[in-house]
């Protein structure tokens, strides 16, 4: 694939599906393409300079800031957004009840432990915590702190977020 992409269509692999991106300026960030072109508004835009983490997505298994990825350069990468963490087909999630029945253990723990206040940072934190626990099922306190050091929350003071992570670790341990 050495030919250049101009303003014609390109295709991204997102949440297990091939998603064509049409009529877009090729310099757009992945965050912009997800939210404005592909109707995936889970990742949030705040700082647009990689400092707040609210736009975090998984790219080939790494947590990255989607605002710092030029979308057209992400062809061939396996991208997972917060919407894609839900195991069932996200297109089925239409009513609040259905969505509530599909949320992940990490999302449920954030609710139960009060790790969500205004909620703007939450999708990025959920992705970062999933990424941590996929790689490390028994993280130390420092592991948890470092793993979310790129996700800024101005409401919770982080205590309830750490409690939510700890709750997931304990539940997953008990069910192993």
């Amino acid at each position: 694939m050495s030919e250049s992409i101009g303003n014609e269509m390109y295709t991204l692999r997102i949440n297990g599906q091939d998603r064509p991106v049409k009529d877009a300026w090729v310099g757009e960030s992945l965050l912009y393409v997800l939210r404005e072109r592909l109707e995936l508004p889970g990742a949030k835009g705040a700082c647009e300079q990689g400092e707040c983490g609210s736009c975090t997505v998984l790219m080939d298994g790494d947590a990255v800031c989607s605002c710092l990825v030029m979308a057209a350069t992400a062809i061939g990468a396996d991208i997972v957004t917060v919407e894609g963490l839900i195991e069932k087909d996200p297109s089925m999630a239409t009513t609040a009840d259905v969505i509530a029945s599909q949320i992940t253990d990490v999302q449920q723990a954030f609710i139960t432990e009060g790790g969500v206040q205004c909620g703007f940072c939450t999708p990025g934190l959920i992705v970062a915590v999933h990424h941590l626990l996929d790689k490390n099922s028994d993280p130390t306190e420092l592991d948890v702190k470092e793993s979310i050091s790129g996700n800024i929350c101005r409401c919770t003071g982080y205590g309830r977020i750490f409690a939510a992570v700890e709750a997931v670790v304990q539940v997953r341990k008990a069910s192993r």
Partner: peptide
Amino acid sequence: VGSPQIRAA
């Protein structure tokens, strides 16, 4: 360098 997200990129 930055955060885990930045160090991955």
